[in-house]
Design a protein around this nucleic acid. Structure first.
Lengths: 185, 185
DNA sequence: GTCTATAACCAGATAGAC
DNA sequence: GTCTATCTGGTTATAGAC
């Protein structure tokens, strides 16, 4: 793996665990086993490298979510597969966590991939729900956009509750709660 | 207002907007219009001051949530009042945002008030739901703990979606989605 | 209680040698 | 491409005068 690639992957890891404000160029260099000059040769600076790392993480997240949502079965099953897909609950969402970072939100360039990824997720969920309605798998009164936003929010918020508790149970409970309601009891 | 109080309130504001990692003692001193020596006279250091600020924010949050949850009406109305209470959506949750902060989570002492506050919220929501079930206002099959976790998660996650989008609409949609499901369409 | 001085170290880069 | 040197300013304090 070349240096540029190691720098991007190291930045992905550090952004996931410590956020943008909590990640220093020095920490990235050490994690990537790259020197100072090396990092500034390949990238213009911290924010440039972070942008590359965020875009990469966004791609990965979309691919993983799409795998669950484009699987076989009814709309309920697809959403169930998405909700129950393997997750490192205590680590949280590599994209969603960036929405809390002041420097990410303050920069239009850094915020853009975060916004686009979460919008894409809600749109895909909404499509699955709409199709489920058409097929008669879901109630006709269901609002696809509102339900999609709720599902995305439960996942993001489930991570918050789990991290606060330092255990995954609150996340699991929140998912159970939304599953119960979606299944109409 | 005395210096100690100004320091606590300034720290509350900065933690809310920038998190623990993103808040420096210097920034606190400037916001509080207090000197270096003054801060270290009243508090042992950054983490000591942060602990005082987090505890204060936790108290305030509980009081505001309790006002909605102990109001008049049915369980649905109480939860609706909680969900629709006035919020600065783009600012997010002053307690929940700390769950994303690596240094908060790494410190048992700093994490404790965050954990306790979110557990308290879920417990109160759960109580309201249980009571609603007893009164026949909610389906008998509703799982109070799971539903409470889901509601708390939707709020926390709604903030994430809204901050990513830089507009409050995704939060509102997520709330609408949970309301629709709770009301059984 | 508040002020200034000092300090050791980190953040985030730039410059130029190799 | 990678290395080391250098730089300005921030971080998180401690010490002691006032």
């Amino acid at each position: 793996m070349d240096t540029s690639e190691r720098l991007i992957r190291s930045t992905q890891e550090l952004l996931w665990d410590r956020g943008y404000v909590g990640t220093s160029p020095k920490a990235i260099q050490q994690h990537a086993e790259a020197g100072q000059g090396s990092m500034y040769h390949h990238f213009a600076g911290k924010s440039d490298l972070a942008l590359a790392a965020i875009r990469r993480s966004a791609e990965e997240l979309r691919a993983e979510a799409e795998a669950a949502l484009s699987g076989p079965g009814t709309a309920r099953e697809k959403i169930g597969a998405y909700l129950r897909r393997e997750r490192d609950v205590l680590r949280g969402c590599r994209i969603g966590r960036l929405a809390q970072d002041p420097d990410i939100i303050a920069s239009a360039e850094l915020r853009q991939p975060v916004q686009e990824t979460l919008e894409w997720l809600q749109r895909r969920l909404s499509e699955v729900i709409s199709e489920g309605k058409r097929r008669g798998e879901l109630r006709k009164t269901t609002n696809p956009e509102a339900t999609a936003a709720m599902i995305a929010a439960v996942v993001q918020g489930g991570y918050v509750l789990a991290r606060a508790a330092n255990e995954p149970e609150p996340f699991e409970r929140a998912i159970e709660g939304v599953g119960q309601l979606l299944d109409g009891d």
